[in-house]
């Protein structure tokens, strides 16, 4: 039972937490604010917070000059595609490990996790070489496959933990009720697994969207997603704060929104069930 606390203490908590929360959030807030300023206001001294002439110019310029939509589209395809591919491969695997466990299931799961811990830089050149040989460098297909592979262990793991929460007795009941394996999966398992699959999809879109090793190293102009688009602003000629902010805001906004919906799943997905 939670106990009542004094209003005074609650006020202190609230003020403290909001203060720290806003401090942590401030860089994002500042970026969003700056994206609506003119370049001159953006570097004004002293800095201007809220009282300036709000403008959408930066967003228009970013789109016109650097073809933002193309990078966005690459990000969408790569993040969405790798997640979809991953789910297709992972659902049957997670299903079988959760409902028909064998003596080796645990070892297989742990081994799959271990592949996630392989440092990317250790296999950078071989992948680079394979990509060149197969003509996959700077292609969306190649990047989609790589991101699918690096996130596959997390997808399988998350689905596995969700499936394990579905009581085996319910599937047995379906079997007793005369359902074939296909009907069992279609009518009973899938509807019950949808929330878990949805969370898994969400978290993986976020991870794939923000991935910044392979996306930087395996793309050039054609297939570059938003991570690479933003990185191109690090060169001196790209130094316009307001435009940088507008580009950044557009790159992070979709994921911030998805991310807020998936905070709970984040813990499960990223700790592999080690913290409950």
């Amino acid at each position: 039972m939670a106990r009542n606390v004094t209003t005074q203490r609650k006020i202190v908590n609230t003020v403290l937490a909001w203060g720290i929360g806003l401090l942590i959030f401030f860089p994002i807030l500042w970026t969003i604010l700056t994206s609506f300023k003119s370049e001159a206001t953006a570097i004004a001294d002293p800095p201007v917070f809220l009282f300036f002439d709000w403008t959408l110019d930066n967003y228009r310029v970013v789109q016109e000059r650097s073809d933002y939509m193309r990078f966005l589209w690459n990000s969408v395809i790569i993040a969405g595609g790798s997640t979809l591919l991953g789910i297709i491969v992972a659902v049957p695997a997670a299903w079988s490990m959760a409902f028909v466990p064998s003596a080796r299931t645990k070892d297989i799961l742990l081994w799959m996790l271990s592949t996630k811990m392989l440092p990317a830089v250790g296999v950078l050149y071989p992948i680079y070489l394979i990509f060149i040989k197969m003509g996959l460098l700077d292609s969306r297909v190649g990047l989609t496959v790589v991101l699918m592979l690096i996130n596959l262990p997390i997808i399988i793991w998350m689905l596995y933990t969700y499936f394990r929460e579905i009581p085996g007795e319910i599937l047995e009941a379906a079997r007793m009720d005369g359902a074939s394996l296909k009907e069992e999966i279609l009518y009973v398992l899938t509807p019950m697994a949808v929330p878990g699959i949805a969370s898994t999809v969400l978290l993986n879109i976020i991870l794939a969207w923000n991935e910044a090793f392979w996306t930087l190293n395996l793309t050039a102009a054609k297939a570059a997603p938003l991570t690479a688009f933003i990185a191109s602003y690090s060169s001196p000629e790209g130094l316009f704060y307001a435009k940088l902010s507008a580009a950044s805001t557009m790159a992070i906004a979709p994921i911030l929104i998805l991310g807020w919906f998936s905070q709970k799943q984040l813990v499960r997905g990223l700790t592999f069930g080690a913290v409950k």
Binding site: V5, R9, I24, W30, I206, A212, S248, I252
Partner: peptide, 29 residues
């Protein structure tokens, strides 16, 4: 701890995790 607006504070605190590394590096820089 008990407080008002716990959900919102939580969202504020979690937000940086969802910012892609290139963006956060550039914004800070």
């Amino acid at each position: 701890q008990p407080m008002w607006g716990q959900g919102i504070v939580r969202i504020l605190v979690i937000a940086p995790f969802f910012v892609m590394p290139t963006v956060s590096a550039l914004v800070w820089k």
